[in-house]
Simulated scan of single mutants.
Amino acid sequence: MDRRLFVRLGLMAAAAPLFPKSLLASSVSDRLNVLSEEPLRRIAFGSCNDQTKNQSHWSWIARENPQLWIWLGDNIYADRATLDQRRDRYQSLKNNPDYKKFIDQVPVIGTWDDHDYYNENADGSYADKDGSKELMLEFMDTAWDHPVWARPGVFQSYGFGPVGQRTQIILLDLRYFQDRNKNQKSLLGELQWQFLEDEIRSSTADLILIGSSLNVCSPVVFASLEGWQAFPAEKQRLYNLLASIDKPCVLMSGDRHMGELYRIILPNGKPVYEVMASGLTHAIGIKLPSKERQGEPVGRKHFGLINIDWTSSGPDVQLRLQSAERSEVYHSLATNFAF
């Protein structure tokens, strides 16, 4: 067990008899607990946020009145920073007036990617990944009693809403366990795969959202451009898992500094959608070949938005890529998940 985690768990145990659980939980956790009882109708998410750049996009996101914000990685840029330097960069974002106002209104969950984890395309060989994990979870104001503290990596699962209107959000960790040096390359690692398979197969949700910091559906990877396509066995394992259940699934991703919408049809006929929102503070428009992409890539600063209408036989879901600079929707894709 990591020393920091040991100390944290010890402090929790010592404090538990003195303080009610509600006092140990952060205000963010309190709001997440309240939100867990409500149907999710509007979720905002994004990635690639350079903390040194203008942060006025938070006001544009707030105008959409999201119930929840999901970080999908590169939440700050701290390449090859020491832990103290990375802590300072996280804190500089939390001190930013635009972001501070936003998180005072909207609860936050999320995962990481390479630039906030450690460095460009970093994998599980990073020596101080447990220290980096602690900084990320503290940045998210993750409650001390959340199970993510007690296991390696930052993968998490959350449930929101009552039966018939229930959304499950699973956030993956594509850095902590990644190993590109084996003959059989590893992206999630078996511990995380077991978690993911257990969560999905036992899910009572009516809609499953999976957050992946890396693009899933694109068939293109090269040089420093990462994606699940570089791990074909694991990509197929994910598709097989999604095909094995009769629940609707949407993938959320980031990393590539562009926005894209995808629709894939699994061999059993099940549709799966991906919305990649990647470019809160900087984005580029590169059109890579993909028969599953819906519409054109977005090369301007943007965020993702998922609107859910629970009034029909299955959840009506609208996926949107929206400007982070003005009131404009770049792309929108709507579907009814009636199974």
Rank of each mutant, 00 (worst) to 15 (best):
P147K: 03
P219S: 03
N49E: 13
W310S: 05
L225T: 07
L280E: 06
E328L: 07
D145V: 11
D114A: 14
S212W: 02
I109Y: 10
Q168L: 01
N96A: 15
F195W: 06
Q178V: 02
I70L: 13
R201Y: 13
C249F: 15
F222S: 05
P248M: 09
G304R: 06
T52P: 14
N181V: 11
R166T: 04
P39A: 01
L23M: 13
Q51G: 14
Y117G: 07
L191Y: 14
F19L: 11
P39N: 07
E138A: 04
Y330P: 04
I264H: 09
S313W: 12
A122D: 11
L174N: 12
A230S: 12
S29N: 04
W60T: 08
A122L: 11
Y262M: 04
V329W: 00
R4V: 10
P17K: 10
A16H: 04
G189N: 14
C217A: 15
S224G: 00
L35S: 08
G10K: 07
C217V: 15
P39E: 08
N33E: 03
N119V: 13
A14G: 15
L288G: 02
N215F: 07
N183M: 07
V28S: 10
V108R: 10
D198I: 04
Y90A: 12
D88A: 14
N96I: 15
G164L: 12
F160R: 02
G269H: 11
P39W: 05
E292P: 00
Q294W: 07
P315D: 00
E197A: 15
V108Q: 11
Y117N: 05
Q91I: 06
Q178P: 03
G110Y: 07
M276H: 03
G131Y: 03
V329C: 03
S36L: 15
H282C: 01
H257V: 03
P97C: 00
F177K: 04
M136S: 15
E190F: 11
